[in-house]
Simulated scan of single mutants.
Amino acid sequence: MSDDVVVIAAGCTGRMGSFLTSNPGLASRFTRTVEFADHPVEELVLITESMCETHRYELDPRTLDALAAHYTSMTRNASLATAGPPAVSSRRGPTARPSG
């Protein structure tokens, strides 16, 4: 029966290490690890643009430049996950207007 269960735990590398060592035997239950490289600024802008399009927001071209500058200025550390900047930016409020 345990072969039918898949559990996925996701987070920043450092925090995942802490999580897996927080309980004896927990690490042995996760048999595969996948680490993703940080996205370059250009990809973060594309991710944000895609997220906006999904919600039918139309970005002003100046917004893309502002996003690139914003992402460039952000400090990358353990509290900022791989795709964190677009998610953080979208929670702060729309940087676009609804299309249509």
Results as ranks from 00 to 15, higher is better:
V7R: 08
R62A: 13
R32T: 09
P40S: 07
H70W: 10
S89V: 04
L46D: 15
R62G: 12
S50I: 05
S18F: 08
M16Q: 07
R76A: 03
T54V: 13
N77V: 04
R76F: 02
E35K: 15
T54S: 12
E58T: 14
R97V: 15
M74F: 05
A27Y: 02
N23V: 12
A83E: 07
F30N: 04
S22Q: 10
E35P: 06
R76D: 00
S2F: 13
I47T: 01
I8A: 05
E43I: 08
P40C: 06
G93T: 07
Y71R: 02
S73P: 04
L59A: 02
S99P: 00
D65Y: 02
M1E: 12
A10C: 15
S22A: 15
F19V: 10
N77G: 06
L46N: 12
C12I: 05
S28D: 10
A69S: 10
E58Y: 08
V88R: 04
A68F: 01
D3K: 15
L67K: 01
P86K: 03
R92I: 04
E42S: 12
M16D: 04
L59N: 01
V45F: 02
A69P: 05
T31E: 14
V5S: 06
S90F: 15
V34P: 04
M74V: 02
G84I: 00
A27K: 12
C52M: 13
R29W: 06
P40E: 07
S90K: 09
T75S: 08
S50T: 09
P24S: 06
L46W: 05
R56G: 03
E58C: 12
H70I: 04
T63R: 03
L64E: 03
M16I: 08
A78N: 13
E42I: 11
S79Y: 02
V41W: 00
T95H: 14
R76I: 00
L20T: 01
L26A: 11
A27M: 06
P85I: 02
R62K: 11
S79D: 08
P98G: 08
H70A: 11
G14A: 12
A87Y: 06
I47C: 02
L64K: 13
S90T: 11
P85T: 00
A68S: 08
A96G: 08
H70R: 15
T63M: 06
R97E: 12
T95K: 14
T31P: 04
A96Q: 03
L44I: 05
M51L: 10
P40N: 08
Y71Q: 00
P86Y: 02
P24N: 09
S18R: 15
L59H: 04
G100T: 13
T95P: 04
G84K: 00
T82F: 02
L46P: 01
A37Q: 14
A66H: 05
T31L: 10
L44M: 06
R32V: 07
V34S: 03
D65E: 14
R92M: 14
R56T: 10
T33F: 12
A69E: 13
C12H: 13
A37G: 14
V41E: 00
V34L: 13
D3R: 15
G93Y: 07
A87D: 10
S18K: 15
V5E: 03
R76T: 00
I8Y: 05
S99R: 15
E53A: 10
D4Y: 13
A27Q: 10
H55D: 14
A78R: 06
V34Y: 12
H39I: 02
G14C: 08
D60H: 14
V6W: 03
